[in-house]
Amino acid sequence: MKYFVAHIILQIVLHYCVAIDYDGWLDIKIEHSLNCNTETFCSRGNISLKSIRSGTPVVDQILFTKHHIEEIKELASIDGFYSIRTLCSSPDNKEMEFLSSLKAKAFLDSGLSDVINVWVLPNGAVMAVNFQVDNSSQALSLSNNKIHSKFYLRYVEQAPVPDTASYIQKLEREREAREKGEVKDNRSFLAKYWMYIVPVAIFVMISGATNPEPAAQAAR
């Protein structure tokens, strides 16, 4: 029985983790606004997933050249934004466009490392692609001009529903406990009812203490 419950819980947990009832490929084209000659955006790389459910990405990004670095330094000097456009393609949708920006200065300071969060609905539709500067680890050196990206595929979680089942179970349990009868209380009388006796005792004591002692007055 125990194992059975554990199994069910495991299944629920698994279901919760992969709260997705659809599987398919996902292709994310990354474009940025650096060192693009005439156009506003040019390619930075590509992320492709064979399966949304497994969530393992193949990340392929360009190396930053000297021009890139110069341009991003220029942006950083005016505290500007480094903008990234992503185009997501899946079997159902073609080239959904998302835009995200990083503070150029922060991106440079972190050694060109960023975090990519992709939010996916249970039906596999992409709702958001965010880029954030990764400053959790120590700053990486800029030497190899490589972009360090961490990719996370995040699922929009199934919201909880009013938990009537466990509440009813709890009520059942309580009812059963009541039917079985109270646990035999074999403490002593004093142990059981001391909380009633003590206040009475205190009251008696206090009223005794405040009473004038006629004998003492008579002596004076």
Binding site: L99, L121, P122, A128, Q158
Partner: peptide, 28 residues
């Protein structure tokens, strides 16, 4: 949702400055 013939409610908490999604959930 056209596959299941049901409607969904999605709640998203978005950071309005950076556009980052903080959390989200879906009601089927």
């Amino acid at each position: 949702d056209l596959h299941h013939k049901e409607s969904w409610v999605v709640a998203m908490c978005v950071d309005a400055v950076s556009g980052a999604v903080v959390t989200s959930q879906v009601q089927r």
